[in-house]
Simulated assay, not measured.
Amino acid sequence: MSTPNHIKMLFLGTFLVLIAGLNFSCMNGGSDDVPVAVGNEDVDDDVTEEEEITSKLPEINLNNWKVTLPIGKPDEVKPPEILDYATNETLKPFFYNDSINGALVFYTYPGASTANSSYSRTELRELINPNDGGKTNWTFAQGGHMKGTLSMDEISKDNNGNYHRTIIMQIHGRLTDGQRDLIGQKDNNAPPMLKIYWTGGKVRVKTKVLKDLNASGTDILKTDSWGDDAGHTFSEYVGFEKFTLEVKVESGRMEVILNGNESVVYNDIHIQKWSVFENYFKAGNYLVSLDANAFSRVKYYDLEISH
């Protein structure tokens, strides 16, 4: 029995449609590879995560700072040379960018030290006037403000398994030329009124106190007239995480603030007596250890000062 013509035509049409669909699929690599419309957010799917990373720079203006290094006598780098620290061969091992996290890294170890210390440092020293060698400084009556965001990146341990300490901020005293000559001292060094330590994952503050409150105007200028206070350790554990420190100074008053939450204020007779000195800010990594294998690496993300 023969198949009716209209049935034959139906089979033929179906066959031709199937053949056409198969050819289209083959030309496009199979149905799973047929392009589909995507939004703009999908256009760069082939860009790797590494390719999307952009370099970040720390928010630190170095025009009014010089840096002391743990090498040389020790070596110092001042403006304008410090501004090119990324390409400065002397600075590169100790003072360099972490461009992933946007930080300036301070690396140090026991090495060269300054005349009035046994310890080494990679540390910034404030220069109000970069052209006069640090002779222009400030008093508590003039006031000052320093604020920085930083973290301990890595630090060695002693033989007992305890982390070494490092000083991360300071207010250092300075004698005027007249005061220096008055007490017969060979340089302009005066005691540091403020030292802020990273110690065991916490922030500890040390200040100076006058041993004899009745000391004469001449004796008060001498370093050995001043001793250390008992110190203050903030309760918050910062560990190796990022934290913010703020130092506020005005006549007869000094305040240190951690992360905007905890604060310690000094406004006693010792701060009032301190008014005879000039001062300058310091920030960085001043390692308090002479152990042969000691080292520390501190990161600063931002740092600002004002008066």
Rank of each mutant, 00 (worst) to 15 (best):
A37W: 04
G161T: 01
Y280H: 15
D132L: 05
D228M: 08
I220R: 02
H172M: 09
V276L: 03
G134K: 01
V265H: 04
G13D: 05
P4S: 14
P70K: 12
I183D: 14
N285Q: 09
T54F: 07
N131H: 06
I128V: 11
E250D: 13
W65T: 05
F243W: 07
N160F: 02
N267R: 09
V34P: 01
L182F: 01
T68N: 14
F281N: 09
K202I: 06
G178F: 01
W198Y: 08
T90C: 05
T233E: 15
N279W: 00
K8D: 07
I71P: 07
V265W: 02
V209S: 08
T54L: 14
L62P: 00
H270G: 02
R204S: 14
P192D: 15
N259C: 06
K282V: 05
Y197Q: 14
G30T: 00
G231P: 05
V17T: 11
L258C: 06
G72N: 13
L91A: 10
L12W: 00
Y107D: 13
D291R: 09
E154G: 06
S235L: 07
R204A: 12
S25A: 14
L16T: 07
V265C: 08
F281V: 11
E76Y: 03
V36K: 15
D187Y: 02
M169S: 15
P110C: 10
K56L: 13
G134V: 03
E81T: 06
T114I: 10
R121Y: 02
A292T: 13
H307K: 12
V17F: 04
N159F: 02
I271A: 09
V256G: 04
G260T: 03
H145A: 11
V203P: 04
I257F: 02
Q170S: 11
F15N: 12
C26V: 07
A292K: 15
S151H: 02
K147C: 08
A230L: 09
G143L: 04
K195Q: 13
Y107G: 09
I183R: 11
V238I: 12
D224T: 11
D46M: 13
G133N: 09
K222C: 06
G201C: 09
L10H: 03
L10T: 07
T68S: 15
L175V: 05
A20G: 09
D268Y: 01
V247W: 00
T207S: 11
D46P: 01
T223D: 15
S118I: 06
E41R: 14
V298L: 13
W274C: 07
L16Y: 02
W198C: 07
K248A: 12
R204K: 13
I196G: 12
S275Y: 00
G201R: 08
W65I: 00
Y109W: 05
M146N: 07
Q142P: 02
V203G: 11
F24P: 03
N189D: 13
S151T: 04
D229T: 04
S151C: 08
S31E: 11
S289Y: 02
V264D: 06
S117V: 03
R125P: 00
H232S: 11
P58K: 05
F240C: 10
N188P: 02
L287C: 12
I128C: 03
T108R: 05
D98V: 04
V288F: 07
K92A: 15
N137W: 00
D212N: 12
F295N: 15
W65R: 01
M146S: 13
D158P: 01
G143K: 03
V17S: 12
S263E: 08
P110S: 10
N61V: 06
E76T: 14
